[in-house]
């Protein structure tokens, strides 16, 4: 069945995000890598609950009653909101760090300043 393409793509996106977090020095790009990992997790969760030839789990004018799994979609919604919260917090910290050090590079930030 489709050779598990969504799961493979989710794994690749997660590894790209972790690679951005490992190889990039800019704090903004590290946060972008974190957002990529979140997106990969969301894609994995939604793909995990997919059922072949099924519809979204909403009964309003539904054409049938074969539906995809609703619990993983609720988990995805929770994950999106928590992702927004963490991203906003990390970006605020990055703004403070940029104001204090004049740079968002981790090599510059590593030196302590009083």
């Amino acid at each position: 069945m489709y050779y598990n393409l969504p799961f493979i793509i989710a794994a690749v996106i997660a590894v790209i995000g972790i690679g951005a977090m490992l190889f990039r020095r800019n704090l903004i790009k590290v946060i972008m890598g974190l957002s990529l990992v979140e997106a990969a997790v969301n894609l994995f969760l939604v793909a995990l609950g997919y059922r072949m030839d099924a519809i979204a789990p909403i009964f309003t004018n539904a054409p049938g009653t074969s539906m995809v799994l609703p619990t993983v979609q609720a988990m995805t919604l929770t994950n999106i909101v928590i992702g927004i919260a963490t991203t906003a917090l990390l970006l605020s910290f990055t703004m403070i760090i940029y104001k204090k050090y004049g740079s968002a590079n981790t090599d510059t930030v590593r030196k302590l300043r009083g």
């Binding site: 489709y2 799961f7 059922r51 619990t71």
Partner: peptide, 24 residues
């Protein structure tokens, strides 16, 4: 490590659905 578990998954055919079937 991420790609090996995808071999055991089956897209479009979830393994454990009893809870979600109850919800639906």
């Amino acid at each position: 490590a991420f790609l090996v578990p995808t071999l055991s998954l089956d897209f479009g055919n979830p393994a454990e659905t009893s809870l979600d079937d109850y919800f639906i």
